[in-house]
Design a protein around this nucleic acid. Structure first.
Lengths: 343, 343
DNA sequence: CTGTTAGCGCGTTCAT
DNA sequence: ATGAACGCGCTAACAG
């Protein structure tokens, strides 16, 4: 009557039923199924067979209630749309190992109230840990400290230095990009990027300028900020080519902007990478492999970030200190045809 | 000692502690917190205050154990990479309502063994229902019938007609696309699409041919199958323009292919939509809004699909018949500059 | 080696 | 209006 049992299909089998079928007590059945040593081989076989026959699946809720661990983790994101959270989520999911730990996915849609609800729901489900994922690298408010479980922030760091945050190293990314351009023999480099209110934009600029400085070079013109779109990449590059016809590289703040840059270069008959090299950030598959030529990009290694977060949570569960502060993940250069000519 | 309590932060508070602080029995505390009527106003206030003070969060596991319902649903996907599962997942998530129901996300990475593991794990967690999401519309093997919970297949239907499957209507999508092209005055329409082993490709062809036939028209040339890439869109369109210079529309099997078509048209000086109209499928935001001109596309309404799936599971939980067979979701035409000139 | 007992946290009788 | 007792399914301690 409780709506508990579904129309087609049997209701869930309990250990008691298995024990009865095997002709033993529940305790013995439990031991047999959990591989405890204090049980006769023949008895164990009987129990296993009974379990098999009834297709018994142990109730993790009951186990969790008893053991104080649920084997679940909450993943709280502010927007699923964002391409960034997906690899992180995947990294976390398979770091935990298939089936041993399960992930509750919650999308707060960027709403703080909603996030509070979700948080409460997750705690009521007694998750063993929490991973909070943002969609931009700017810091966000902490979900609180005196939570009964370890919390790790990924991509968007917490504004509280007592929390543990794992983020991509955008300064290193900017540096890496410029170093690559220089190593390709470029020296007149311009920079087109997105919304200046994004920490990612600023950090990449910082890294890029540092690398230029180290090489005794200067950026051509000012950094061009606007939005993270192909359109802006196209428009900005057109302006650049007119104002500084002698540039030999465009450092773009995202793969989308870079694609726009490629389109304008093509429209204006500039050869890439012959006349001009183009490089982007994010290494977003659909963008980098479909452009002409394919796009060199800096990969933030997001999947690794997700994996690390999961491992930290795990470690904390085993009593290890969780740690705190901002930790960065090194980026990776992926060279394609937009900076190095293919043959 | 069980690793149960985290270093910083208190361990979870139980109802017993709340009751003690409020100076009542657990039974009374329970009633007070759950809004039962048989409790004095002053007592209730005391309990609520105690709960607040200890920031008590009820243990859903214990409740679930008792009530036979967990308020959780499993979402089993074969690949998270795929852009298709994300909107479905979002639709499901918010159909359930924030916090009331939580979603376990499991990615089987396309591996059957792994899927079995995940399935078992979900059942052991006593999920109330299951949503199985695929990344292509071809049918997949059923996860089984005698499961203790309702199962709904989304995007990729089950091969068993006894199961309930919710999929986008690709035949209608193909029809809708051609009808739009015709209504724009086009009559010499060619079709470039992706991998012919995909049901999505075939279904769209079926719908397109039906619509052409209904209008007394024929496709220009044969359907051109290959892969779902921009490159193929570019190459195929180049071939088309050479062989049939008089075509006035290219129906593309995906937004990616359509973007390739737009690029080739542009390269060859054909005006879009003046000389040639281009239309795609999926209405993938990054693709349709960044192309020149923006791309008209058929939106499969995936979020609605996810929402419906969630609602079906819900209804089944309330004792309603789950239903069976293949149900389709109507697509939606989104007109942009690639078929209708903007001013 | 096996069975009995207790209790994880909670909601629900049934007494009081 | 309140509280004691029971049980959800399971594991850990002890007894036999």
């Amino acid at each position: 009557m409780a709506g508990k049992d579904h129309v087609r299909g049997s209701k869930a089998v309990t250990l008691t039923e298995v024990a009865r079928l095997a002709g033993v007590s529940v305790a013995t059945a439990s031991k047999a199924l959990n591989g405890r040593s204090q049980v006769a081989a023949r008895t164990r076989a009987r129990v296993l067979q009974a379990a098999e026959q009834l297709s018994f699946v142990p109730n993790t809720l009951a186990q969790g209630l008893l053991m104080g661990r649920t084997g679940t983790v909450g993943l709280l994101t502010s927007d699923l749309q964002g391409r960034f959270v997906i690899p992180i989520l995947m990294g976390a999911e398979d770091a935990f190992g298939a089936g041993r730990v399960n992930v509750f996915l919650c999308d707060a849609r960027g709403d703080t109230i909603r996030e509070q609800h979700q948080l409460r729901a997750l705690l009521s489900r007694r998750v063993d840990g929490l991973i909070v994922v943002g969609s931009r690298t700017d810091s966000r408010s902490s979900v609180g400290h005196d939570l009964p479980v370890p919390v790790v922030y990924v991509y968007a760091p917490s504004d509280d230095p007592e929390d543990l945050s794992l983020v991509p190293d955008n300064v290193a990314a900017g540096r890496l990009a410029v170093e690559h351009l220089i190593s390709c023999g470029r020296s007149r480099i311009a920079h087109v990027t997105g919304d200046p209110s994004y920490a990612a934009a600023q950090d990449r600029v910082t890294g890029a300028l540092a690398a230029l400085d180290a090489a005794g070079l200067e950026l051509v013109g000012e950094v061009m900020y606007s939005e993270w779109s192909e359109r802006w990449g196209r428009d900005a590059t057109a302006v650049l080519l007119e104002r500084y016809p002698d540039i030999d590289a465009v450092l773009c703040g995202s793969d989308q902007i870079a694609r726009g840059a490629l389109d304008t270069a093509r429209d204006q008959g500039r050869k890439v990478p012959g006349d001009i090299a183009v490089i982007g950030f994010d290494n977003w598959d659909e963008m980098v492999t479909n452009s002409r030529p394919e796009l060199t990009s800096i990969d933030p290694n997001l999947q690794l970030l997700g994996r690390s977060a999961a491992q930290r949570v795990f470690a904390a569960l085993d009593g290890e200190e969780l740690g705190k502060g901002l930790h960065t993940q090194a980026p990776r250069l992926v060279i394609r045809g937009s900076t190095v000519a293919r043959r």
